[in-house]
Write a protein that binds this DNA or RNA. Structure first.
Lengths: 292, 292
DNA sequence: CATCTGTCTATTGTCGATAAAAGACAAAAT
DNA sequence: ATTTTGTCTTTTATCGACAATAGACAGATG
């Protein structure tokens, strides 16, 4: 098996959901655009749908015959790309499992454990190395540098530099810039979640990413925006395995965000800087507290 | 040929040079340490040297029989690692050749052009992507974002942030820190080169890297230090293909460095910041001037 | 005549295989 | 009692192969 057909399966599943809304499907290129895949894959999807008697397909006419049932879908776990699988497995090892700094990382071992080839593992590790958690010894193994206190401090130091600068440039965006609309939208969601914090506090993590990414993007600097990937992945996995006081922590962060947003809107550099600093300081504290 | 034995060849060449200095070679592990290779490779080197009647080898006794001649060495170009070859070839394409932003990059084509497998090219591109010059479309090609004015501006923006901070923390290093000795050494080299600038101005590039890396290292932040890789590679290749006014440019930069070094030594934050800013501004100008 | 489909080709993602290099361990040597 | 060497095993770097996917082009369709 040279390549898993996960692109096909994932697109197929998404396409099934579309069947609910229409009696006929649009043209092949249009479906391709919708799903973000090539025509080759679209045709494979259509062929499969015809095979399952979900549609009748003859050239331009693609008529829906019946609604999809649960087992027309491919299983969820067959639809994620290999690198996503490796990432999850790897992050669990280094964040959740007892992985000591200095430990050796072995490509072959990881590959065997997940049951895949070494090439994919290698490529993942190379991509992952930019996060500063592992380091390669050429012709030899990788070293786990570990999710340590130093790591967190170095990470937040750069984050603070970048975010302060981004926030400052955000405040200078012209009033009709799309970012202000997005900001308003984000603000509204903050209020929504706060109003029902008991039940919706888990939605914070995603909103947090959306907000900070918006701020970073306004720097219009690829290095700053790219760096935010590191923040994202660290926070994403970190919170996934560390849920103590989540409700309370998130409520506080939401309030800080609202201050921060108000400051951005004021367009007053001093206020922006103060609010940004306050929030970043408490975000750093939160992160540090959860490291042994 | 699964693997080129470049590690062996390169280490062999370096080991030949050692032959001039001693009549007998030390133990295998010691040679390995010296050359930075494993004992397996050391033994291959010794075996080859014995084969060429350069040494007689019996267990612990390794006696030099004759001095190496020119054709005992392996050719230079067989000693560089594959990724170094790809890097050079690729950088030439995108910096020297007429590579338009937006151009597609094709793994297979590069591989064929250099005459190697696709795996190595892929891995190179993945590693290289962190420099922000290319971007991947999953399941499809890479896009060249190009060495443009925007790239240079974004790069220098981050560089300036990082270097100002690093310089500030450099000034706070305890007086007995090893960095001060290294700084003195670098300063002396500056004077040496300036004294014979007509002949030695090409040595600037390497010295420049050494100096700025020293400064960045004092931040003790892996993200800041790692970022300096991008600066290094960009300046390295950029100057290699752009030598207009090199003598004059380098002389000026050397003078600026000396001011900057003096400021660091003064340990006065205001002076440090001023000198650092001055130098970074002119470095940026130089870079920008050479972009169409 | 613009867009869609049928068909064909080219490239990417992943695997397994293999030589090079690293490294483990016990016997040998000082 | 270390350190060195001989031998053996394991891992990495790289290749070639192949299915999945993207993409090109001409003829068909409205």
């Amino acid at each position: 098996m040279a390549k898993q057909n996960t692109v096909f399966k994932h697109a197929f599943n998404r396409c099934l959901q579309q069947l609910a809304h229409t009696a006929t499907l649009p043209s092949e290129p249009e479906i391709g655009n919708m799903l973000g895949v090539s025509r080759t894959t679209v045709r494979a999807i259509l062929a499969r749908m015809e095979e399952l008697a979900l549609i009748s397909w003859n050239k331009r006419s693609k008529t829906v015959l019946r609604q999809p049932k649960a087992d027309d879908y491919y299983p969820e776990d067959e639809t994620s790309s290999l690198s996503a699988i490796i990432e999850r497995s790897f992050m669990r090892r280094i964040l959740a499992g007892g992985a000591e700094p200095g430990m050796q990382i072995n490509e072959l071992e990881i590959a065997r454990e997940i049951g895949i080839g070494t090439t994919s593992v290698r490529e993942f590790l190379i991509r992952f190395s930019r996060f500063g958690l592992i380091e390669k010894r050429p012709n030899s193994h990788w070293i786990l540098k570990g999710f340590t206190r130093e790591f967190a401090l170095e990470l937040t130091e750069v984050r603070e530099m970048f975010e302060l600068r981004s926030a400052a440039s955000f405040a200078l965006l012209p009033p009709k810039h799309a970012a202000w609309t997005e900001l308003a939208d984000i603000e509204a969601t903050h209020h929504d979640i706060l109003a029902d914090i008991e039940n919706r506090y888990m939605e914070f993590s995603e909103l947090d990413e959306r907000f900070h990414l918006l701020v970073h993007t306004s720097s219009a600097n690829r290095f700053i925006v790219d760096f935010y990937d590191i923040i994202t992945i660290v926070f994403h996995y970190h919170y996934q395995w560390n849920k103590t006081n989540a409700r309370q922590r998130n409520a506080r962060a939401l309030e800080e965000h609202l201050d921060y947003i108000a400051a951005l809107r004021s367009r007053d550099p001093a206020q922006v800087e103060a609010a940004c600093r306050r929030h970043l300081r408490s975000a750093r504290e939160t992160l540090l507290q959860s490291i042994p």
